[in-house]
Design a protein around this nucleic acid. Structure first.
Lengths: 168, 168
DNA sequence: CATATGACTATTGTGCACAATTTAATTGTG
DNA sequence: CACAATTAAATTGTGCACAATAGTCATATG
């Protein structure tokens, strides 16, 4: 039993909440979601839906798999999300006639029009001024994402060197 | 209609996915959750449950409200989560006899014992080596969290200077 | 051509996360 | 004491996020 005698936290304890890198990332993401919520709500979007729109406004047509690769999401998340966006009239989903395994997502005219209203979202969210060092922060987190994605991606692949009992 | 003639992204477009700070934070959080999942799963914990345990291992007894303040979560998230942890035998929830509005969360012996197994989680997750500049990243994100929490907190509070038509 | 193998999406079930509402207990004020 | 205002937690309903599974199509190989 590790109940500390003093019930006090030790300086070098690896389990101190303040030592974790993951926790502030988690908290920042929740807070951002909460702050984006009301702003995007006026456009009829949620935050992940907004991300999908950002991709489509840049590229117009994407398959579910491409969207997932760009946003680090899988079809279990994207399929119902895209169905809601289709119901809202922002996108159309259709099987690719060339390769019927794929589902192609296309912007509707309404989806394009929404862009004009969304242009002001970044400015609204930043509140006019950007905190010092925000660009550096973005690049640091992007580096972290690259590292984590590598580590995550190296689970299902591993072409042939996959031991039979590799955790199910 | 803002459909670009070239269907090409402009360098200065504020809606470029690569310009957003929020997106890498979102992606990193999802990836971290995914990577923590299997490790914490062996302890019978999810990631937010792990965070609750980190707090309780530091302080042993907390109310639902205190947990929420520390983790930036509300009772709608914590109540069902804590019920699952109670079912799992890690914590006990009980009304505070002093103030029966409060619910006090206390570690069980089993909850304390889990700490010995959790000590190795941070090391396991870092994979032995920490990416360069991780400490700086943590501090940057913590600063961001402070800023965002301020902005978020100034919605319900604002003691008397609250204009009557302030969004609802 | 037959079938094995891999790729891609959809489905199912669990667990967050939050807004809005409800219920109950405490505090403040006449 | 009565009673309005405040605070704390629980409840309800919607929308992610992911693991595991299933089903469908495409391609390689015999």
């Amino acid at each position: 039993m590790s109940r500390p005698v003093t019930a006090q936290a030790q300086e070098d304890d690896p389990l101190l909440l303040d030592r974790q890198v993951c926790f502030p990332l988690y908290a920042a993401t929740n807070l951002l979601n909460r702050l984006y919520g009301p702003v995007l709500g006026k456009l009829g979007l949620t935050y992940p839906q907004y991300l999908v729109m950002l991709v489509l406004w840049e590229r117009e047509v994407q398959t579910v798999g491409e969207l997932g690769a760009l946003l680090y999401l899988d079809s279990g998340t994207l399929t119902p999300l895209l169905k809601r966006m289709e119901t809202a009239g922002l996108v159309v989903r259709a099987r690719d006639p060339i390769d019927e395994r794929r589902v192609v997502v296309t912007l509707t005219d309404q989806g394009w029009m929404l862009r004009d209203r969304a242009v002001h979202v970044p400015e609204t969210m930043s509140g006019g001024y950007a905190p010092e060092g925000l660009d550096e922060l973005r690049e640091s987190v992007r580096t972290l994402v690259t590292i984590l994605a590598q580590r995550d991606g190296k689970r299902p692949a591993s072409p042939r060197a996959l031991s039979p009992d590799e955790r199910r």
